[in-house]
Amino acid sequence: MVWTVVEYLNYEPWRFLVSFAAVLFLVLNIAGIFTMAERKASAYIQLRYGPNRVGPRGLLQPAADVLKLFSKENLSPNRADLWIFLAAPIAMFIPAAAVWLVMPFAPGAVIVDLNIAILFFVAITSIGALGVIMAGYGSRSAFSLLGALRGAAQMISYEVPLILSLLGVIMLAGSLSLVDVVNAQSGGFWHWYFLPLLPMFVVFYVAGLAEVKRVPFDLPEGESEIVGGYMVEYSGMTWAMIQASEFAMMGLMAAMNVTLFLGGWQPPLDFLDLGAFNWIWFGLKTALLTFTFQWIRWSVPRLRMDQLMDLGWKILVPACLVWLFVVAGAMLVLQGS
């Protein structure tokens, strides 16, 4: 009985709708959970307790926040370009949600096993920059325009090291499919790609931080300089959508990092294999990586725009290129013979 329902859902339009709903559900939950984690982590680092009034230990705070934001009025500046202004949060949210479609959570548990999943990831996340520009331009405010310009420059510049660091993984795995990449890393943590590709792992991590606009690369927001950058004029649900997309993007970057360099759902040692429950490993690793994002955020100040560009173009890109040659040479020597 159940099986027929599942089979029925596997037919094309239904399959698409169900997976889309599942992804939306997942992303919104991830945004909520990460918001909470962020607030709690920051509070504990800063000798505070964080939200502790709504629900047990304040865990229902994101739900309360969403309720509050729903009840808020959506304000827009008088001179704003309304269509662009309202479309920007959506343009930011969709890429953050869509990439989860190709993410392998556990053996066999992937919504779409694309054979060009990495390319899909690169292509879709680039759309995020468009959302930032739309938000900054549509608001018609000096601060948000500056934020948008910064955001565009930063996100486009950091795509380059991001993609270059992906090349190492593609070379080692020999495939663009994320499932293949994860499968290629099986058999203990010494098979994971972060060891042979350590510089690329670091570059991917740093570029990922910059791509999701977190401290020390949060110049597009820069709340003490340009007050909030491209999202200074947003309020209510539109603002919540921008925030949700940022947190989902952060989770996505952590998950991508895990999938590409830290073995995805692979357990660190073979005897810890949990079979279908290997998504626990995936979740643990992602959570740990997300925590390091938050830990960095609450420890360091922000870079300046020129220093950010210097870091991207003068350090990350050359480091990636050099290591790419090293990896290619090593592969030639080890496999060619």
Binding site: Q46, L47, G222, E223, R302
Partner: peptide, 13 residues
């Protein structure tokens, strides 16, 4: 000074 540079933690210490 740190708050304005973007680091939020030192102000609370």
């Amino acid at each position: 000074l740190m708050l304005e540079l973007g680091a939020f933690t030192p102000i609370l210490y």
